[in-house]
């Protein structure tokens, strides 16, 4: 009896979490299927199945290009930040040397500056490197917010891994690079996938840099493309189109989570290693 009650409470909690997270998204889908003045009425279920908004998102601008750009930029950002993050985390988390605390704080300090303040300096930098209106410029500028975060999170996780493993590897004559790749990486999958996902989404959603550092429609990323969707006239808000575009943008991320979610939950619990 007590057990049954526990189950009910648990699933009620699960249902509440889902409702809370998904309802606004669900409402976006409902809205994206509406047209014209219907927007101004409250409806809990779609009454019409109007796909025009989805069609016009792709017709009015190179939205497929924008999606591709976003995928390219975000993937490159994740790859670079994870690579730099893991190597730095090994150094900062497992090796004792002077100035480590200071380094960690400096890395953190980079993410204490408001984005608006960094914007114009970054703009000069990007132009100086000749990377204006170039996806590579976006990748580099995104490092400013993904790198501190990945370095810190991975350092914390790396630090807490059992030391016996590393000792054994050192005894076997493994060099630091081998230790990272063969010993630590397999254990860190949950942390790697989690930080990777969070970095991916952060890059995926970034707006201010993407708007300022790109100029042509075919170089732009999705959030900018969404912000550029406009109605027939200056003030009109094409709500249906924006919602349709948002639904399209969110789907790849959901797919990504579904693909990688096995990796979020594995690591130590799956392995036989104990600390």
């Amino acid at each position: 009896m007590k057990r049954l009650f526990g189950w009910i409470a648990f699933y009620a909690l699960v249902a509440a979490i889902i409702l809370y997270s998904v309802f606004p998204f669900y409402y976006a889908i409902v809205t994206s299927l509406k047209a014209g003045s219907q927007l101004f009425s409250v409806e809990y279920f779609p009454t019409t199945w109007n796909w025009d908004n989805y069609v016009s998102v792709f017709r009015e601008q190179p939205f497929a290009y924008n999606l591709l750009n976003s995928v390219l930029v975000s993937s490159a950002v994740v790859a670079l930040s994870l690579f730099f993050g893991v190597t730095a985390a090994f150094a900062l988390g497992r090796v004792q040397f002077r100035g480590r605390g200071l380094l960690l704080m400096t890395v953190l300090g980079v993410s204490m500056f408001p984005q608006v303040a960094v914007l114009s300096g970054m703009f000069e930098l990007i132009r100086g490197f000749g990377l204006y209106n170039n996806l590579l410029g976006l990748v580099i500028s995104y490092m400013i917010f993904t790198l501190p975060f990945t370095v810190w999170v991975l350092t914390t996780f790396m630090r807490d891994l059992p030391k016996e493993l590393e000792e054994a590897a050192i005894m076997d004559g493994a060099n630091p690079w081998e230790i990272i790749v063969k010993v630590f990486m397999p254990l860190m999958w949950p942390a790697l996938v989690t930080t990777g996902l969070l970095a991916f989404i952060a890059a995926w959603n970034e707006f201010l840099f993407a708007l300022t550092f790109t100029l042509t429609n075919t170089q732009r990323t999705v959030p900018v493309a969404i912000a550029l969707i406009s109605g027939a006239s200056q003030y009109e808000l094409p709500w249906g189109n924006i919602m349709a575009a948002s639904v399209i943008v969110t789907l790849p991320v959901v797919v990504l989570v579904l693909i990688f979610q096995r990796r979020i939950v594995s690591g130590l619990t799956a392995g036989a290693v104990k600390g």
Binding site: E60, Q61, L228, S230, G231, S233, Q234
Partner: peptide
């Protein structure tokens, strides 16, 4: 000028 839509 404009973004997309009619104005564009």
């Amino acid at each position: 000028c404009g973004a997309v839509g009619q104005e564009y």
